[in-house]
Design a protein around this nucleic acid. Sequence first.
DNA 1: TGCATGACTCGAG
DNA 2: CCTCGAGCCATGC
Length: 106
Amino acid sequence: MKKHLPSPPVDDRRFHDIVAVLVSIPAGTVVAYGEVARDAGHSRQSRLVGRILSMWSDELDLPWWRVVTANGRLVPGHEVEQARLLAAEGVQCRTGRVAGVRRDRA
DNA sequence: TGCATGACTCGAG
DNA sequence: CCTCGAGCCATGC
C-alpha cells in the first residue's frame, strides 16, 4: 500500500536543502544518496533523500534517475526506467548498474 | 514511548 | 555477486 503525501515539507529546511541539491545535479551526472545528503549538509540523512525522491520526485519534478546507491545500484523496481533516462543523458549503464559512479563528473 | 519500515551505507561471510 | 547485520535518520501506528 502506497502512502500518500504527508504534511507539506516546505517548512523543513533539511527538505529544502536536499531538494536544492537534487535540482542542481547537472544532466549526465549520477550521484549517490549519501553524496546528496552530504552536499546538502546532512551527511547522515541519505534515507531522507530516498524518501523525498520516492514521495515527491514527481511532484517537485526532481531528477530521481540521477540518484543511485553508493554501490552504483539503480533504484530497485525502476532499473529499466532509470537506465533509459540516464542513457538519454549520455550515462552508460549495465544491468541495474551505472558505469562509473562519479560524484562530480559524468 | 517503543517498535516496525524504508528508493541508504558499510563491512563481513 | 548476493545476503545479513548494525548504524543512521524520519515517519507512522
